[in-house]
Amino acid sequence: MKDKGSKATMDFYNMSDFLKGQSSKIITKLSENDEAAFILKNGKPKAILISKERYERLVQAGINILDY
């Protein structure tokens, strides 16, 4: 897990990484390290993948991502 006091940066993964069978590796890394990452298509951010723990903290803080 990254130091909560430091400025966090997010990794970037291309859609092609998921198509090449890397999805399990990527999801496991994000989950184990409690991280978030941009998913890119043609070099442009299309989605963000976050760990379950990070999502649960958002919900516990009263943030419903489906409202935005």
Rank of each mutant, 00 (worst) to 15 (best):
M1K: 02
M1P: 07
D3G: 12
K4I: 09
K7L: 01
A8V: 07
T9E: 09
T9P: 07
T9V: 13
D11H: 10
Y13S: 03
Y13K: 00
N14H: 13
N14M: 09
N14E: 14
N14I: 07
N14F: 11
S16V: 13
D17F: 08
F18R: 01
K20V: 00
K20Q: 13
G21Q: 01
Q22G: 02
Q22F: 05
Q22S: 13
I26F: 10
I26A: 03
I26C: 14
I26S: 07
I26Q: 11
T28S: 14
L30I: 09
L30K: 07
S31Y: 06
S31F: 05
N33Y: 09
N33R: 09
E35Y: 00
E35N: 04
E35C: 00
A36W: 02
A36V: 11
A37K: 01
F38A: 06
K41I: 00
N42L: 09
G43I: 02
G43E: 03
G43A: 03
P45I: 03
P45A: 15
A47V: 06
A47Y: 14
L49I: 15
S51N: 07
S51V: 04
E53L: 10
E53F: 06
Y55R: 11
R57I: 02
L58C: 05
L58R: 12
V59P: 01
Q60Y: 07
Q60I: 08
Q60R: 14
L66C: 06
L66G: 11
L66Q: 13
D67Q: 12
D67P: 01
Y68C: 12
